[in-house]
Amino acid sequence: MSGSELKSEIWVKALLRTAQAHGAAGHVVRRGHGEAGAVLVKVARLDGTARLLVPARDGAGTRLFLDLTGKTAGPDEMSIDAYLAKRASQDDDIWIIEIEDKDGRSFISERVD
């Protein structure tokens, strides 16, 4: 994490406030390391489908999120939940956030690829 990036806990709080301000619900499914834990985001569409967004870096080192929906897991919620449970069992530091929005909005301000 570079000095200009927010701590994970602060970033998560801001994401949840933004979702709430736009009429969506969001909650912490799993709390990770407060300063530098990776934040994985599940966006549930409330119809049994979801998106899976995971952090990454581009060639210049800029943080972005990769949409792994249909690649690693999903678009069904059950396969995304299974993927997230596996990741959580392998990494004590990760955060898992769930946003519930029927339109599938993530409210992530970083680039999503």
Rank of each mutant, 00 (worst) to 15 (best):
G3T: 08
G3R: 12
G3I: 09
S4D: 05
S4A: 06
E5K: 14
L6I: 04
L6A: 11
K7I: 08
K7V: 10
E9N: 07
E9Q: 11
W11Y: 14
W11E: 09
V12H: 11
A14P: 12
A14C: 10
L16Y: 01
R17H: 14
T18G: 03
T18Q: 07
A21E: 08
A21N: 04
H22S: 08
H22L: 05
H22N: 13
G23Q: 10
A24N: 12
A24D: 12
G26T: 03
H27R: 14
V28S: 04
V28I: 14
V29I: 10
V29E: 08
R30P: 05
G32W: 02
G32A: 02
H33N: 15
H33F: 15
E35C: 05
L40P: 06
V41A: 01
K42C: 13
K42T: 09
V43E: 07
V43M: 07
V43Y: 05
A44E: 15
R45N: 01
R45K: 15
L46W: 04
L46E: 12
D47F: 06
G48W: 00
G48I: 01
G48K: 02
T49M: 04
T49N: 00
T49K: 03
T49W: 01
A50V: 06
L52R: 02
V54R: 13
V54Y: 10
V54I: 14
P55H: 01
P55T: 06
P55D: 07
A56H: 01
A56E: 02
A56G: 03
R57S: 10
D58M: 08
D58E: 08
G59T: 05
A60F: 15
G61D: 07
T62N: 13
T62D: 11
R63Y: 09
L64A: 00
L64P: 12
L64G: 03
L64F: 10
L64C: 07
F65S: 08
L66H: 11
L66Q: 14
L66C: 04
L66T: 06
L66N: 11
L68K: 15
T69W: 03
T69L: 00
T69N: 07
K71I: 14
T72W: 00
T72Y: 02
T72D: 13
T72K: 06
A73R: 04
A73E: 07
P75Q: 03
D76E: 10
M78G: 11
S79W: 01
I80S: 04
I80G: 03
D81Y: 00
D81E: 11
D81A: 02
Y83Q: 08
L84T: 03
L84W: 00
A85H: 09
R87V: 15
Q90S: 06
W95R: 11
E98V: 04
E100G: 03
E100V: 00
E100M: 04
D101I: 09
K102H: 05
K102S: 08
G104W: 04
G104H: 06
G104L: 05
R105Y: 10
S106A: 12
I108V: 15
S109K: 15
R111M: 14
R111I: 15
R111A: 12
V112Q: 00
V112T: 01
V112L: 03
V112Y: 04
V112I: 14
